[in-house]
């Protein structure tokens, strides 16, 4: 047995001694297996159980309170327009870092011919990035971003300004609904390398409990709700 295996065996043995149980208790094993398989929900707050349009309103409200800028865009053309004007009005160069997300790729970028798009993981010099959130939970204004070539995780943290597009139809009420959406995409009991629940721009209140935005991550979070 390797040292790692030995440490593992003795670690589990100590716990079993303390609990007064044995390894092969079928009743306990069944209880654990059942919970992992059924993953029962706890109480979902009433505020998360709302009609889709109300969820959009709640998400917007929560994100705004938490320091993000939120705009609703009706069409893909409007989305590109909003991205261009946000870069302009924020004094950022017309350059965007983004991944290979098909929803983002399908935007009418020819309308914003002056925006230079770079693809792949974020570089330290990138000022602005664009991602797509797979799903959102309105209850606390929380966007779910998943890692992968479509939306690399570094886009969420390295640039100063982070833009996130989400389809209005992907805005759900609770975290639980969001996990079920992820399970539908990735399979049961499987997650991508990173799931970032993002609820505002980077902030710190470590010094004298004074709130400052832009601690290590993006100073600005701009959310575009499409549809």
């Amino acid at each position: 047995m390797s040292a790692r295996d030995e440490a593992r065996a003795s670690g589990l043995a100590r716990i079993r001694v303390a609990l007064g149980v044995t390894e092969d208790d079928a009743y306990r094993q069944a209880a654990v297996a059942e919970r992992l398989e059924r993953h029962p929900r706890g109480t979902i707050p009433a505020r998360a159980r709302k009609a889709p349009e109300e969820c959009v309103a709640l998400l917007t409200d929560m994100l705004t309170k938490q320091g993000a800028d939120v705009s609703r865009v009706a069409t893909k053309q409007d989305a590109v327009g909003a991205i261009a004007s946000y870069l302009g009005s924020s004094g950022l160069p017309p350059r965007l870092r983004m991944g290979a997300d098909p929803v983002l790729a399908a935007l009418p970028w020819r309308d914003a011919w002056d925006i230079e798009r770079r693809f792949g993981r974020a570089e330290p010099t990138d000022k602005a990035s664009l991602s797509r959130a797979l799903v959102a939970a309105a209850e606390t204004g929380t966007l779910f971003l998943v890692s992968g070539a479509d939306n690399p995780t570094t886009l969420n943290f390295l640039p100063e300004a982070h833009m996130v597009l989400i389809n209005a139809s992907d805005i759900l009420g609770s975290y639980e609904e969001a996990w079920d959406r992820l399970r539908a995409v990735y399979g049961e009991a499987t997650l991508p390398r990173t799931v970032n629940m993002i609820s505002g721009p980077s902030r710190t209140a470590d010094i004298e409990q004074t709130l400052v935005r832009g601690a290590h991550g993006p100073r600005r979070l701009h959310v575009l709700i499409l549809g």
Binding site: M62, Q66, G99, G120, R121, A122, T140, G141, T142, S147, G148, A149, P152, T153, T154, L191, P192, R193, T194, V195, N196, M197, I198, S199, G200, P201, S202, R203, G217
Partner: peptide
């Protein structure tokens, strides 16, 4: 209500992950 970032990490990067 929630912290700005709540992150779930599962294993190392996958083959198709750029970071």
């Amino acid at each position: 209500e929630i912290t700005t970032y709540t992150t779930f990490v599962t294993g190392p990067r996958r083959d198709s992950d750029p970071d």
